[in-house]
Design a protein around this nucleic acid. Structure first.
Length: 398
DNA sequence: CGGCTGTACTG
DNA sequence: CAGTACA
DNA sequence: GCCG
């Protein structure tokens, strides 16, 4: 049992959730959780300072002002962070459930919990009653009961069970490798894989090339990326593509960087050529961009797309030409036909459609790093997502 | 009850 | 075309 | 699991 060790129990609100962190959930995805262990010992810094990351964004709803607020926030002494802290604790609980259910391949239930977590983070007050909880969009009867249980006990029995399930732990570990999701993780588990070491070692195990790359770089890739590094990467990337393609190329950081996170899980770049006129295809620029970045070493491995397999891997095992592969494989034929569809997938349902713009965007996933020369601390391999879009729709893409 | 983001890659 | 993974 |  975790007791609430806090030095100053005298604090204001007594009944509140004892501990924000979820035991067992060692997932790095969120990276920040206050601390993985019992709130017990580590009191001072862990509990108090909460992770820099999480709350930065929530609430994104309206304040872009908070962009980097972390720093300015006075590290006041502990006790009063409660509203945010409490919400984050609840959110983490639901995220833990999401993960568990994804592992069980019950995606819809998982998605529901994900939605619930988002709803809680958005809420401006502390959820203390069943009614307050169920009034939120996305939280229904069952979830509200969970909120109540959490408030009362500081945890969720259901979640504890999941967190202590050895199989789920392995599934989560395997799933932390890019391109290995719930289904593949399950198969690997059934083949006896219990660790990343097994994955690297056993030659009877088959995983995608992208997985192999990410597995070999797993340690680096599992680390969070500071904003400064994203900015530096952007600067160098823009310089490279302008030099190789056109001075009218621009790029900006998207994803969690744009949402103000203090650290991000990957670098998400959106390129656009301001010289592109209406109706001109932006997607054709992707390959040249990737090539330019490969040439400068900013991108070291290409995980998907037409150039998938280029970079380090190609050198190591270029054997696999594209022999007879009559097309199908990397379908996106570099040459002729441009995916005939673009219009075919006009199942753009509710998605806005921009007249005059044919193929609006393209993307590919890669791994790269700021070149070695220079700071050592920026030498880690990072997941880098590259996208291109027509200059007229940039804002919809970010 | 049925739907629940959209896209790309694999086979 | 279905299944899978990812953002 | 939630919503309409």
């Amino acid at each position: 049992l975790k007791r609430l060790p806090k030095p100053s129990p005298a604090a204001p609100q007594p009944e509140l959730p004892p501990n924000p962190s979820q035991p067992g959930s060692e997932e790095e995805d969120v990276g920040e959780r206050s601390n993985g262990l019992g709130p017990g010992q580590t009191r001072s810094r862990e509990t108090i300072t909460f992770s820099p990351d999480n709350r930065a964004e929530e609430f994104s709803g309206g304040d872009e002002s908070d962009i980097c607020e972390e720093s300015m926030r006075p590290k006041r002494s502990p006790r009063e962070l409660t509203v945010q802290e409490h919400k984050e604790g609840l959110a983490q609980m639901f995220l833990g459930l999401e993960k568990a259910y994804q592992g069980k391949r019950d995606i819809w239930r998982g998605k529901t919990f994900s939605t619930a977590a988002a709803a809680i983070r958005k809420c401006s007050f502390k959820l203390q009653t069943y009614q307050q909880a169920i009034d939120l969009q996305g939280i229904g009867h069952k979830s509200a009961l969970k909120v109540v249980e959490y408030n009362k006990t500081g945890t969720l029995r259901r979640l504890e069970v999941f967190n202590n399930d050895p199989k789920l732990k392995v599934l989560h570990l395997l799933g932390s490798v890019h391109d290995i999701g719930p289904a593949k993780a399950e198969k690997l588990y059934l083949q006896g894989v219990r660790s990343l070491e097994d994955l690297k070692t056993r030659d009877d195990i088959v995983i995608s090339e992208a997985s192999k790359i990410c597995l070999s770089l797993h340690e680096d890739l599992s680390k969070r990326i500071p904003r400064a590094e994203c900015e530096e990467y952007l600067r160098l990337a823009v310089k490279a593509v302008r030099k190789a393609l056109s001075v009218s190329m621009e790029a900006e950081l998207c994803g969690s960087y744009q949402r103000g996170k203090v650290t991000t899980g990957d670098i998400d770049l959106l390129f656009y050529d301001t010289g592109l006129g209406p109706g001109q295809r932006a997607d054709l620029l992707l390959t040249p961009i990737v090539k330019a970045l490969l040439n400068t070493g900013l991108v070291t491995h290409v995980l998907s797309g037409e150039l998938a397999g280029t970079g380090y891997i190609k050198r190591e095992k270029s054997k696999e030409e594209k022999p007879s592969s009559s097309g199908s494989r990397r379908s996106s034929s570099p040459t002729g036909k441009l995916k005939p569809n673009a219009s075919k997938s006009s199942r753009f349902g509710n998605q806005p459609i921009y007249k005059g713009v044919e193929s609006t965007s393209a993307c590919c996933m890669t791994v790269g790093r700021l070149s070695n020369r220079g700071r050592e601390r920026f030498g880690l391999y990072r997941r880098v997502d590259l996208r291109v879009c027509h200059p007229s729709i940039v804002h919809f893409q970010r």
